Simulated scan of single mutants.
Amino acid sequence: MDIAENAALVVVDVQQGFEDAGFWGPRNNPGADDNIAALIDVWQSTGRPVVFVRHDSVGPRSPLRRGQAGNDFKEYVERRRGRTPGGAELLVTKTVNSAFYGTPDLDAWLRAAGVTQLVVAGIQTNMCVETTARMGGNLGYDVVVAYDATYTFDLEGPFGWRRSAEEVAQASAVSLHGGGFARVVTTKEVVDAAR
């Protein structure tokens, strides 16, 4: 795998509110946070651009709404913000699933920097990570999703169908990879290629 010298790491919604198991329910991939931290560290040590995305929920009950502690980034992410060399770092805030519909304009920032490849990680695999990856693919970026640097939660859909977090995450990965929106790989593959 090739990771471009200016590939952007897009860290999606790694916020404290996702620790609220009473709100979200069971999750998968307990190692995701370590993998997200490893990706940020490699990106910062190699001088590649990092985009931190924060979801400012408008849902009145959401732990991610502005003004709540859950809106803040997880501590390990907050500690790494502002440490990307050369100022190649961006904070995007959004109220919808896609980081491309946030503020400031992610697509414009990436194009101005000549970025054509994105590595996407964060929360939730099947929601904001998948939507951001799909839109990135639609916009012509070479998108890589570090699957084990994402996680999600059990989900109920139509007809009483219920799927475990792992089933939901796998379905998302199959849809992204099989549909040609992104290459879904492991954190180790990305880290090894980026060093």
Rank of each mutant, 00 (worst) to 15 (best):
D34A: 14
Q16D: 15
L64Y: 08
S98P: 02
P85S: 06
L91Q: 05
V12S: 02
V50T: 04
T46P: 03
G22M: 02
E75S: 09
P60I: 15
V42H: 04
D33C: 00
Q44D: 01
E89T: 12
F73C: 06
G102C: 04
L64V: 06
S45K: 09
S98L: 05
L39N: 02
R79C: 14
R83M: 09
E89K: 07
G82I: 04
P60F: 14
E89F: 04
E89G: 07
V42W: 03
V11G: 03
P30N: 08
F18C: 00
P26L: 14
T95S: 14
D33E: 02
Y101P: 10
V11H: 05
R54Q: 13
D41E: 12
F100H: 09
L64K: 09
N28L: 06
F73A: 07
T95I: 15
G22V: 06
G87E: 10
G70N: 07
R66D: 10
S57F: 11
G70Q: 05
L91I: 05
L90H: 08
G25R: 07
F23V: 14
G31C: 07
L90F: 08
R61P: 08
P49V: 07
P60M: 14
D41V: 11
P60L: 13
F100M: 11
R79F: 15
R54E: 13
I40N: 04
T93E: 14
W24K: 08
P49G: 04
A38Y: 09
Q44N: 07
Q68M: 15
V50E: 01
S62H: 03
G70L: 10
F52N: 03
V10R: 00
R27H: 04
G87K: 07
S62V: 01
T93S: 07
R48Y: 00
Y76P: 01
R66Y: 11
N35A: 05
D20H: 13
S98W: 03
A38P: 11
G47V: 11
R54I: 13
G87L: 09
Q15C: 02
T46M: 03
S45E: 12
